[in-house]
């Protein structure tokens, strides 16, 4: 029976890992294209999810400001928008955000040291966090785009019949795995087999060199930030469905960091494999060792696991080995 319990923990760890990977993917995309660690990725997920709920519920953006400025009491347009259409509208808003980021921030920082760009993304995170609150309010929002939640009775019955113990697998996690697989396949295909994808990788290698061969830095950055915005939206939907759309959603970025360290900052499959290893490792450690050391080991153990991998592969499992010649 102990083995079956451990197997259930392992399966759930893999599923949790997929959820971490969804966040990590956004970081990888931007890092691949610009060499920038986008500190704002978690906040982008929050902003996207807040905007999605706002659109679905027909909320008036900036209602508090409008009410305070004009002495009115507006909060809703009085309509609701179907989930799929609202997702499309939110994706468009994320494209708009990408354009604004390129025009107002990145354009002015071409050729700067990566640390300068990193600092700019910290500023962006603070700005987006405030903008989201002002636009949609700080309340916890319920997000329901029709994704199922709760125990998968099919898995429970099947495992019970085969093994004598019904496994718990959350249906939301199964959906997350399917969506993540589709997303990764699309992103890998895009970056390997399309002209824009190859241009994206060229920009990542060297801004100036990419410019000299006629690649439009402006277009590539807008494209990449738009895709990262869409990935953030997907992560926001998954995590927001799980525990409501609220500020804490931005902190899921902390879960993505060990995944990136382990999988490598430049590999899309690495984000997935890294997520699976972290998810599986932290859950099994908690199961076997947690109770001996007071529990709640998952947060720190994920980083320990990533550091152990870094000792042997500093570039991460799938990261590109950087050799700088003097």
């Amino acid at each position: 029976m102990e083995f079956l319990y451990a197997s259930e923990v392992l399966a759930n760890g893999l599923m949790a890992g997929v959820m971490y990977s969804l966040v990590a993917l956004g970081f990888v995309l931007i890092y691949k294209a610009s060499g920038v660690f986008n500190y704002a990725q978690g906040v982008m997920a929050l902003f996207a999810a807040m905007t999605l709920v706002g659109i679905m519920e027909g909320r008036v953006p900036f209602a508090h400001l409008i009410n305070a400025a004009f002495g009115v009491h507006v909060s809703s347009f009085g309509w609701t928008v179907p989930g799929l259409f609202a997702i499309l509208l939110t994706a468009l808003i994320m494209v708009g955000l990408a354009i604004a980021i390129e025009k107002l921030v990145l354009k002015h920082l071409v050729g700067q040291e990566p640390i300068i760009l990193f600092m700019a993304t910290i500023g962006l995170a603070w700005f987006l966090e405030g903008l989201g609150d002002v636009m949609w309010g700080a309340d916890v929002k319920v997000l329901d785009v029709g994704l199922p939640q709760g125990i998968s009775e099919t898995v429970e019955t099947m495992t019970d019949n085969w093994l004598g113990y019904g496994f718990f697998i959350d249906r939301l996690d199964i959906w997350a795995a399917v969506i993540a697989a589709a997303l990764v396949a699309a992103l890998v295909g895009f970056s390997q087999y399309t002209k824009q994808g190859r241009a994206m990788r060229a920009v990542a290698d060297d801004h100036q060199a990419a410019l000299s061969v006629g690649i439009s830095l402006q277009f590539i950055w807008i494209m990449v930030w738009s895709i990262a915005g869409f990935v953030a939206l997907v992560a926001g939907i998954m995590w927001g469905t799980k525990s409501g759309v609220q500020f804490s959603l931005s902190l899921i970025a902390l879960k993505a960091l060990p995944v990136l360290m382990l999988g490598g900052f430049t590999s899309i499959p690495g984000a997935i494999v890294g997520g699976l290893i972290i998810g599986m490792g932290e859950k099994l450690f908690e199961y076997f060792v947690g109770s001996m050391v007071g529990g709640a080991t998952e947060n720190w153990f994920a980083y320990v696991l990533a550091l152990i991998f870094l000792v042997f592969r500093p570039q991460g499992l799938f990261g590109e080995r950087i050799i700088e010649r003097v």
């Binding site: 949790a16 902190l251 947690g290 947060n299």
Partner: peptide, 16 residues
Amino acid sequence: ELPVDPPGQEQKSQWL
């Protein structure tokens, strides 16, 4: 006793 590290978005281990 089942501790959950804050903020607490991931609690699969505890509920399993």
